[in-house]
């Protein structure tokens, strides 16, 4: 199987309903865990599940607006860009993700 092809395409990773609103779930990949976030208004975002600060699992943070607060040291990371907010500097890689017919589709090879 052509690994590159899979990576570039959108892959069904599950139902939107499996992710709690204002919460996250993870997807295990060869390149580490990816955190899939769902906002209050049902938008989804995908970030590498590592805070740019000390690699805290962002998927375990509190989601508010389109940001997540890292559970280890309270850095606030933008879900849209992966950028640390405020005075903190750093960026979590982000990935293309979309919802179609209630299913969440993730594309690892496509920069969001």
């Amino acid at each position: 199987m052509d690994g590159m092809r899979i990576a570039r395409d959108f892959v069904d990773i599950g139902a939107l309903a499996e992710i709690p609103r204002l919460g996250a779930r993870t997807v295990t990949t060869g390149m580490g865990d990816i955190a899939i976030f769902r906002t209050a208004d049902d938008r989804v975002f995908a970030l590498r599940d590592q805070c740019p600060h000390k690699q805290g699992p962002l998927s375990q943070g509190i989601v508010h607006g389109a940001s997540v607060t890292c559970p280890l040291h309270n850095w606030v990371i933008s879900l849209e860009s992966g950028q640390a907010q405020g005075l903190d500097k750093g960026c979590a890689p982000h990935f293309a993700v979309k919802v179609e017919d209630g299913r969440v589709l993730l594309a690892l090879g496509v920069p969001a």
Binding site: I6, V11, I13, G14, E18, I19, P20, G23, R25, T26, V27, T28, T29, G30, D33, I36, L106, L108
Partner: peptide, 11 residues
């Protein structure tokens, strides 16, 4: 219990 596990595995 779901929240303790990954929702999918991509390899």
């Amino acid at each position: 219990g779901k929240k303790f596990n990954a929702m999918a595995e991509l390899v």
